[in-house]
Amino acid sequence: MWRETMTGALRLTLLVWVVCGLCYPLLEVGINELAFPAAANGSLVRLNHRIVGSRLIGERFTGPLWFAGRPSAANDNPMRSGASNLGPASRRLRDHLWARRARLVRQHPSLATRRLPADMITSSGSGLDPDISPANADLQAPWVARARHLPLARVEALITHATRGRWLGLFGEPRVNVQVLNWTLAAQSGRR
């Protein structure tokens, strides 16, 4: 009994290790690199033959020429994913929210009297959220249009292009991919 249990346990351990720890992941890598090469390698996007980022991973866009993404507790660094983890009653959370709001109001005084979309000044769960809400994008559209000397309608068309609705019209939230939106802006300006 003892000997069988020991050898059985040892063999089972090695067997499961080889099958589940090595064969299974390697098989899946093989299958998916063939079936979905773009997605399997991180949905990377190239502009002028250079990788400019991933459509799924947010980056920091600053300045009036670009749409701004969600605030990030990870400093928009993909190697440091994570949230702020500040509790709901945390003093620091309140300070962050107020500071972000104050910065926006300084740049766009007309915001002083209005409430902002929740995703505009709250930081995301991953710190790499590539999306913003449609309300957030609509609010930013005139600012970007003015800075880029583009007609507002043009910018709004680009927003529509970068928007994904709910899945089946029901699941998830409608969202605008800031990465895609800003890359289209960059490509358009480059062409002009």
Partner: peptide
């Protein structure tokens, strides 16, 4: 802190601290 707390008008409202836009 001046957040739209109710959902609607193209945004999700509520406690979005630490949440992702696509999930709301």
């Amino acid at each position: 802190s001046g957040i739209m707390i109710h959902a609607g008008h193209g945004q999700m409202g509520g406690n979005m601290v630490g949440k992702e836009t696509r999930f709301g």
